[in-house]
């Protein structure tokens, strides 16, 4: 008699959410970082409303991408240090599925707050309402892909000195397509051109990442813990 995979998946998701809930103070950091980065751009570029509107989508997307990148480091670190990750890999349930629960939990506590604050940032950058909606939709489809891809890099660099910088080096080229489609969608919306093709692409990449990435992340964790 063994518990079902769904039970184990739930238990992992619940555990990670509980852990985050007990460290509420850390939840705000990516959001503050995101807002601060975005507000640096007007200081650097000047406050011309037309200019900000045209570069706004790019700024928000790059900001979101960097905030994701920074928050990723915490994805497995504590579990690696206290041995929980070992226990996860030892489970009779497939590690890739259990890992997907951890990635989902991570996205819920870091990605979703970023989403929630984008309308505000859109206002700061003078984006019209339609572009704001498209920006939100793009981030909704894109940030889970960033979290997923990120999990592979974090798993590969576990326990390495200066892992943080290495994570960025590994991830930036992989993040490029999400940036292209996400920022492109908003750019298209500003020009009143169709945006659905971009959403299809973002959705396709998300679907691909959801299917393949947990396998790669589980393999990466085995490689990192197996020595």
């Amino acid at each position: 008699m063994r518990t079902s995979l769904a039970t184990a998946w739930w238990a992992v998701l619940r555990r990670d959410l509980l852990l985050s809930a007990r460290r509420l103070g850390e939840l705000g950091n990516p959001v503050v970082f995101f807002a601060a980065v975005v507000s640096l751009f007007p200081l650097a570029l000047g406050a011309d409303a037309g200019l900000l509107r045209s570069v706004g989508p790019g700024i928000v997307w790059v900001g979101a991408l960097l905030a994701c990148l920074l928050s990723l480091e915490g994805l497995f670190r504590a579990d690696f240090e206290d041995g929980s990750l070992e226990q996860l890999l030892l489970s009779p349930h497939p590690a890739s599925v259990l890992v997907s629960a951890k990635i989902l939990a991570h996205w819920l506590v870091t990605g979703v707050p970023l989403l929630l604050i984008t309308p505000l940032l859109g206002v700061l950058l003078n984006l019209p309402p339609l572009a704001q909606t498209v920006l939100f939709g793009g981030l909704l489809l894109g940030t889970p892909t960033l979290s997923l891809l990120g999990s592979v890099a974090v798993a590969l660099t576990l326990g390495l000195p200066r892992g943080g910088l290495l994570i960025s080096v590994l991830l930036l080229p992989l993040f490029a397509p999400v940036l292209v489609f996400g920022a492109g969608a908003v750019g298209s919306a500003l020009l009143e051109m169709p945006v659905l093709p971009y959403f299809y692409m973002l959705g396709a990449e998300l679907a691909l990442a959801v299917t393949l990435v947990p396998l790669a992340t589980a393999a990466a964790l085995r490689a990192s813990l197996g020595s």
Binding site: V152, P173, A176, L212
Partner: peptide, 21 residues
């Protein structure tokens, strides 16, 4: 082993990157 995982992830991404560019 880590490099193998990364190279395989990269090779799946190359067409996506190329197409997006």
């Amino acid at each position: 082993r880590a490099g193998a995982v990364l190279a395989l992830v990269g090779v799946v991404n190359i067409p996506i990157i190329h197409y997006s560019v």
